[in-house]
Design a protein around this nucleic acid. Structure first.
Lengths: 217, 217, 217, 217
DNA sequence: TATGAATGAGAGTTCATTCAT
DNA sequence: AATGAATGAACTCTCATTCAT
């Protein structure tokens, strides 16, 4: 979880054969994520990834069908984590607004901790039409639906305006989050991405007009 | 081999060439925009563009240094148009909120009319680090500053909350716009992109909570 | 026709641009034939062919879709020549037996003059299942039918036994020719391939038993 | 991971291994023959063979030096069988013509029963120049000489024409046989390969001209 | 200016072979 | 003897770019 690079822990003398199976696959995915994020999918080469992972080029093809499969495999696990993490965080929270607040915070927080991944997802993966036949894509759609769901709960319970199209609102929220993240990632300034969560939530909930004193809690 | 096409119409020679020069450049840019949008920068080839523009591959290099230069030249004129058009539309409008409303409408409207361009801008250009040394990039930053400016006018005039970070707000608004546009473009459903402008403005201005009756105009 | 290698005759100074279009395609086919014959299709590389033809590897792909297309293009012209040549040689010949004699001679003669091509045809092309969808394959089948035709003419005219299956006979004759050619090519001893034509014809026509004196013409 | 297959049956350990060695080699050869025949030598992969034989890729290299050695090992045993079988069948047969008849029948019969092998022999092995340094190649030459021998016996005994070159005749006969076999194998129609033996023998012995009634036995 | 044939570096990918276990 | 993950050389093919015409 916390560990940065040094995942290679207790290796036997010849470490070439020590990292195996699922671990090696993970290593490749990790390195590929870094390289793709740094150079972009097209500019990155298999040979660079292999070199950085300290393995042979051919080995990558033992775990992934081809370069694109490697790319599309990156979101697989991350999306699982993202969704199950979201589920956990929303558990026990009452009220659609509270859920929304949490969701914004969780989203920004996740992106902050997975900068490389987000960059790849937004810039290399989502725009690829073949991604749509992926399981990861389905998970993203699921998440998207979850947001709409929360919004509609809010409408039903009377804490959200019913005159706003749910999908528009969803797009606005997710778009804002993504834009903030990308700007942060590219420009290198996102020291406190998570810190912006509350502010962003506040913008959406209360609007940008000055509060009329004593009006809302 | 013998018969070319018959592009030579009855223009005085030098006039013709002078016009053709600029025209041809525009033609290339136009076709390149379509091809890049349809296939993505990397998958598109110079040869495809040349064929679609009915010119020789080599001719492209008479007008553009290389493929990337061709890509980066696309926003040049568009951004000029975008900014001057915005200027015009904002002229005579009083009040930062009205300006913001107009800006959101203008932005979505422009994107709606320039789908190909937007796709390229968001997916192929902005993520390229070398784009940052471009004049077009400067224009985008200028626009970005203009948005912040309007926001800060609003704060000064007391029609916008002062407790919201201006850049955060800007990112939220632009992010929402972009997300709505991209979703529309990729998913093919954007029949009334402009129609969403008012709704989006409303979300930001009034927030998503139900209005307390009779409170605001 | 007679010319061996030095087909590059009156070239302008920069010969790189001098061989053009159909000529270059022919050059590549010629060189490819030599290289494929010498090393076999799989062992031969595009780079070897390019080097031997004094062109860039990429140029080969301007004229042929891929390596296999290059291989399958070899029989194209040769088969046309083979068939039209056969047609010419059979013209004016009366009697199926005389035609058969000519055919055997012509076949061996052609193979003798096209050793490289034959080697490739028999060892690399015909065994490739994808060759069957080729025009050249159709030409081969046509030739095959032509042989059967002659045989059946012979039966009708009473100069050939009617109790022999025509296709069996065809296979026997063509098989004999091919085997003689291949043995000659591979073992390097085929100084007088054509010279064997009459003997082979004689074997088939008269059989291998001693002639009873004064029996046939 | 934990559970292997259950190949360990109840054999006394050392017995089992001893038998397995030679058996395994045979298994590999058998499977390799099938795979090479189906896909061709170059298109076939060691991994495919290993998978089909239910062994590890590496195990193949315990029995064969490399892929080519595996290929060249295929004719080894088959040629031994072929030759000793031929010997048996020719035993007791009097007269070169009868021997020739038998030889043609035996050859076609063997090919019919060993289609896969023949395909490989004719299409992948014989054209490989390195095959010539093989023992199997020597066996083939021996067979070839045996045919010439029979032919020359025939000449000596006066039942074969002496004016036909023995090697030419041999090539014609073997070529016919091979062509018939290959056509049959590739085109998928060889229901009665052996049945054609007598007809083929007849073609060679009596020639293709109509018999003059009552002339020969 | 315009052309488009030619270039050639460089990419992804395959697979025979090795060798630690 | 048996394994199969790992290797890495070598291949085919693409395509941005050049330049003689």
């Amino acid at each position: 979880m916390a560990g940065k690079k040094g995942q290679l822990l207790n290796l036997s003398p010849n470490n070439k054969r020590a990292i195996q199976g699922e671990n090696k696959k993970r290593l490749i995915l990790q390195v590929a994520t870094e390289v793709f994020a740094a150079k972009g999918f097209n500019e990155a080469t298999i040979s660079q990834i292999a070199k950085k992972a300290n393995i042979a080029e051919g080995s990558i093809y033992d775990y992934f069908k081809n370069k694109e499969d490697l790319l599309f495999s990156i979101p697989e696990e991350r999306m699982d984590n993202f969704l199950s993490g979201l589920q956990e965080h929303l558990e026990g929270i009452k009220g659609p607004l509270s859920k929304l607040r949490k969701l914004i915070w969780y989203h920004l927080n996740f992106y902050e901790k997975n900068k490389d991944y987000v960059l790849i997802l937004l810039q290399n993966i989502q725009q690829n039409p073949r991604f749509n036949s992926t399981r990861a894509y389905q998970l993203i759609r699921e998440f998207s639906k979850r947001v709409v769901q929360i919004i509609e709960e809010g409408k039903k319970e009377g804490v959200l305006r019913t005159d706003i199209d749910s999908r528009l609102l969803r797009d606005a929220i997710l778009g804002a989050i993504e834009h903030i993240t990308i700007r942060g990632s590219i420009l290198g300034r996102l020291p406190t991405l998570t810190a912006e969560a509350e502010a962003l939530y506040d913008v959406f909930v209360s609007g940008i007009q000055p509060q009329i004193p004593g009006e809302r809690s």
